[in-house]
Amino acid sequence: MAAKFLNYYASANTARGFVTYFEDNLIGIDKIFILKGGSDDIKSLLMVNIAINWFIKGYDVELIHSASDEEEVEAVIIPALGMAVVNGDVQHIEQTRSCSSAGEIVELKPDETSRGPATPEELIASLIKNVQELYKMAYKQLQSALRIHDGWEKIYLDNVDFGKLDEIADAAIKNFLSDMSMKKEGIVRNRFLGGATAKGAVDFVMDLTRDLGKRYFLKGRPGSGKSTLLRKIADAAQKRGFDVEVYHCALDPQSLDMVIIRELDIAVLDSTSPHEYFPSRDGDEQIDLYRLAIAPGTDEKYRDELESIIGKYKEAISSGVSFLAKAKELQNQIKTILGDKFTLESMDKMYLDLVDKLNAYVNDLIDKT
């Protein structure tokens, strides 16, 4: 079987502030190489090259992307080797218990001959302070969007047939699990379906589900029971010993957007905006909860109210994204300042030194088996 790349988010800028499930995704990882020094994009480039290196060798590779920039990674994991490389200068990674217990610090230092001018510490401190303020303003706007979204949900919650939703959930669980179970404890890995980035909403849904035989696309309105259905499926699978990937909503982490059970070869996802997808191949099915469980005519009855709510919601989201974009501009300035210290030659040396460390660990692992 060909090796696979898996891209996802383990943290997000949400309406409830910054939320991370980073540690959940280090379950089973025995060795962590913690990169310190240099800018985030330098560490990201090193990790991407490491990922490609091990992918070419035939290993499945996971890339955890930055909550602020989908093009930047903050960790690479090679599950089969129980090994990971992480950006140790990211606060939520630095504070992860697994990193301190299984970690080895790797200092990224350029050659003395390649050093640029001294880092203007006061300028960086000022930029960081401004970035933090912009994030606070972004979270405030996202909080406003969530409150508006709650009003949007209430319209459909007031018109939902909860008995029908229970029937749908019971039928889905019976269909997916039947009488199957695993003779082990199921592991739950919490992640985010997408991210609220400077470019707006970004997700890796098609990447995450590409190799799965069955995909169920949940359609419906806010408040029509999609998250509740996903939670029931995840809980039932985990109780029967299956490993479950639980993908939370990037706006409201208390809500679920997707569940993947790879041991059963299935994914069930909320397939509505801003991550709207449709069945496109054999094995895809659509489940329309609005049609199945919401009182007919609800959309038409509340048309004017819904138009007002949706307009305000989009405005709040757009405002939040604009603050994230401004924060990203300042973060790019910080990266440029820090990145100026490193030449291509020093980057090559850092990469080769890191490869040597990883190879030494793997060779030692092989010798012990």
Rank of each mutant, 00 (worst) to 15 (best):
L306R: 03
I155R: 08
K109W: 15
G103K: 04
E300P: 13
S126W: 14
I34F: 13
A15T: 00
Y9S: 10
P117A: 06
D150W: 15
E305P: 14
C249M: 07
T209E: 12
A12Y: 07
Y302P: 00
F33G: 01
P117C: 05
I287C: 05
G82F: 13
D257I: 07
L264T: 01
V205C: 11
L358C: 05
N363Q: 12
F176K: 10
W54Y: 12
D24T: 09
G17H: 10
P296T: 01
S101K: 11
S101L: 15
N363V: 04
R240W: 09
L46C: 01
F5W: 09
S273H: 09
R147M: 04
V61T: 05
M180F: 12
R189C: 04
F242M: 06
A236C: 04
S181I: 06
I105E: 12
Y139R: 00
H65N: 07
S178E: 14
D211N: 07
A327P: 08
Q91W: 15
E72M: 06
L292Y: 12
V355D: 08
A327H: 04
G283M: 02
Y277E: 13
Y156N: 07
V355S: 08
R215I: 11
Y9N: 01
M47K: 02
D284K: 00
F323R: 03
A145L: 05
T197N: 01
V131F: 13
L157T: 09
L35M: 10
D161N: 05
E72P: 08
L127A: 00
M1D: 10
L63Y: 12
V76Y: 11
M350C: 05
L230W: 15
S114E: 10
Y290H: 03
S255I: 05
F55E: 10
D179N: 14
A325K: 13
R191L: 12
G38N: 04
I337N: 03
D257R: 11
D203C: 01
T298G: 02
L251D: 03
R303G: 01
A118F: 09
